[in-house]
Design a protein around this nucleic acid. Structure first.
Length: 288
DNA sequence: AACATGATCAACCGCGATTTC
DNA sequence: TGAAATCGCGGTTGATCATGT
């Protein structure tokens, strides 16, 4: 069947962006916002295709882009997230504020992947070896390695995640959450993983915690959990202990999990023993 | 100084997923 | 409901810079 190209390539600029093009694009997005990439170049007066504009904005012009080298803590986090998520660079980037998927992918291919290859303990990654295009399709789609739990995500969404838990389970949740974000119980700011990781040396708990989710469901839950806004949980707690038996956590999850009740029982001390994660269908976020 | 080689990273390409009509 | 349009992702390429000889 095939598909038409994203735009006509005729007469369009290619290659490196000029300062003028950057300025035009940035000012256009500042006024009109992101999105509608296909029509953006025409409207903005750029001789670029929409894809190129989107990429330039996301990887370079966005105001929240963090410049400078990847720190040691960020590298550690990338390695661990890669172990969990595989080459899902956008998901990994989502856990590193200010970093782009392209940047992390490049960093992995030029630094980490190489290191790991030298160490010889990461057989699934071959940055300069056999090109992935030559790998079997199965291996390309599921770059899972032995000892690596790759969570296959899907861009699906549910409307609500309700944590039904008693006070004891909640305490355990917060004990866990403090590993992620020490000020969780008092702030409404989104969790900044890179910051908290840099402040907490022992974040194995976090990764193990993620793995528990992986063990529990499936393919979709971990990435969904990563997108949760923990501050909503803390706000509800602050509203009173009695209100916490049922509390909402903003996030996404698979609609196929609508009726799923997952009991968190694990060998690890830090999981939510006895608490239920219940995906309620068709309800609006309590905390929106 | 000149050339070769390696490293880095911005940009491109193709494809699958999602949305729109 | 299906086709087309659009978006977003991951793999790859190639220009440029850095380093070595």
């Amino acid at each position: 069947m095939g598909r038409s190209p994203c735009c006509s390539k005729e007469g369009l600029n290619r290659g490196a962006w000029t300062a003028m093009e950057d300025k035009i694009l940035a000012e256009y997005i500042k006024i009109h916002g992101e999105g509608k990439w296909r029509n953006l170049p025409k409207r903005a007066g750029l001789m670029r295709c929409g894809k190129s504009c989107r990429l330039r904005w996301l990887n370079y012009l966005r105001p929240d882009i963090k410049r400078g080298n990847i720190t040691h803590d960020e590298e550690e986090l990338i390695i661990r997230l890669h172990k969990l998520l595989g080459n899902r660079w956008s998901l990994i980037a989502g856990r590193l504020p200010g970093r782009t998927d392209n940047e992390i992918k490049n960093y992995w291919n030029t630094n980490i992947g190489k290191k790991i290859q030298i160490q010889g303990d990461h057989p699934n990654h071959s940055p300069k070896g056999r090109p992935s295009s030559q790998l079997p399709q199965e291996q390309k789609q599921h770059p899972t390695i032995e000892g690596s739990r790759v969570v296959h995500t899907k861009a699906t969404r549910c409307t609500k995640v309700v944590v039904t838990c008693g006070p004891q389970a909640l305490d355990q949740f917060h004990a866990q959450a403090k590993v992620v974000e020490p000020s969780l119980a008092t702030t409404h700011d989104p969790v900044d993983f890179s910051k908290s990781i840099s402040e907490e040396t022992n974040y194995d708990h976090l990764l193990n915690f993620m793995m528990d989710f992986d063990q529990m469901d499936g393919n979709n839950f971990l990435s969904d959990f990563l997108n949760m806004d923990f501050s909503q949980l803390s706000r509800l707690e602050n509203e009173g202990e009695n209100s916490i038996n049922t509390c909402a956590v903003k996030g996404h999850s698979s609609p196929t999990s609508n009726d799923q009740k997952a009991l968190f029982v694990s060998d690890h001390d830090h999981t939510l023993h006895g608490s239920d994660f219940h995906i309620e269908p068709g309800l609006e976020w309590l905390c929106d």
